[in-house]
Amino acid sequence: MIRQTVIVALILSASGIVAQAPAPRPKFDTFEVATIKLVDSDAKTGRFIKMEGLHRFIGKDYTLKLLIAAAYSLNPRTISGGPGWTESEHYDILAETPGEVRPTHDEQMAMLRKLLAERFKLTFHREQKEFSIYALEVAKGGPKLKASTASPDEPAALISTVYPQHILLPARNTTMGEFTSMMQRAILDRPVVDRTGLTGKYDFDLEWAPDETQLNGDVTGAPAESPAAPLFSAIQQQIGLRLEAMRGPVDAFVVDKAERPTEN
């Protein structure tokens, strides 16, 4: 994670030293340039979205449906409508971001939403539907979370690493809303609702053995000899929370229109 470095100019004056306010952050509403390429899905390289340096945004091996899930922080099951290719054709995205600072995750997703509207001609509406969901709650004994000491302005860090026998997720400066959002769009097979009542920002580490229902089916499941606990047990043992299966209303995303993008 790269922290934004703020340089405050000091000006000598007759009355002493005066600090100038730092320059405002640029408005991250659209990528400066973006290339979208139709590709064959490659399980060996993996699917990811990341920033490389300050300006290089990379999306690797995503269908339009999974791009929508990432951009709007949704579980893929809550997305419906649109032509069949939105779930079968895979794309790589390479884009450049504006300004002289690295955009936060929310700013990256705002630019991705604009890209989907402009290049995929995506239009949609919302409908409330009932789904099988997971509710994230505080487990008996209370949460095992460390309050973050990072600056309130520093972005959250939630980057999971998949190993042959386990997944490691170090979370830093993270709210429960950000954690549940990541779990529903990238890890679990159904929407997740935050019912912990926890309002702070926290640091914690979560390690678990995945199964084939997680990560959009991109993993085969950890081997039986994996020393890591299953996800539900790990969440309760390691961070003092629990996932409760139930049914509940969710604002579903319905695609009204989508077109294949031009590759430039």
Rank of each mutant, 00 (worst) to 15 (best):
R3I: 11
T5E: 10
V6I: 15
L10S: 08
L10Q: 15
A14N: 15
S15T: 14
A19W: 03
R25N: 06
F28R: 14
T30I: 10
A34G: 01
I36Q: 10
I36Y: 07
K37W: 02
S41T: 05
D42L: 04
D42P: 09
F48R: 15
F48P: 06
K50P: 00
E52K: 04
G53M: 07
H55R: 12
H55Y: 07
I58F: 04
K60S: 12
D61S: 15
Y62R: 12
L64D: 12
L66V: 02
L66C: 01
L67Y: 06
A69E: 05
A70Q: 14
P76W: 06
R77Q: 13
T78R: 06
S80A: 14
G82H: 07
G84P: 02
E96H: 05
P98V: 13
E100F: 00
P103K: 07
P103M: 04
H105F: 04
D106G: 04
D106W: 05
Q108C: 15
R113H: 02
K114T: 08
L116M: 14
R119L: 05
F131W: 03
S132V: 01
K140G: 01
P143M: 13
P143Q: 13
P143D: 05
P143V: 10
T149C: 02
S151P: 06
P152K: 03
D153W: 08
E154R: 10
A156I: 05
A156V: 05
P164E: 11
Q165H: 10
H166Q: 14
E178L: 00
M182L: 10
M182K: 03
R185I: 00
R190Q: 11
V192N: 09
D194I: 00
G197Q: 03
D205T: 05
D211M: 02
E212N: 04
N216W: 08
N216Q: 11
N216D: 15
G217A: 12
G221S: 00
A222R: 10
E225C: 01
E225I: 00
S226G: 09
A228N: 12
A228R: 12
P230E: 10
L231H: 10
F232M: 11
F232S: 06
Q236D: 01
L243V: 01
A245V: 05
A245I: 01
V250I: 15
A252L: 13
F253K: 10
V254E: 09
A258K: 11
T262Y: 03
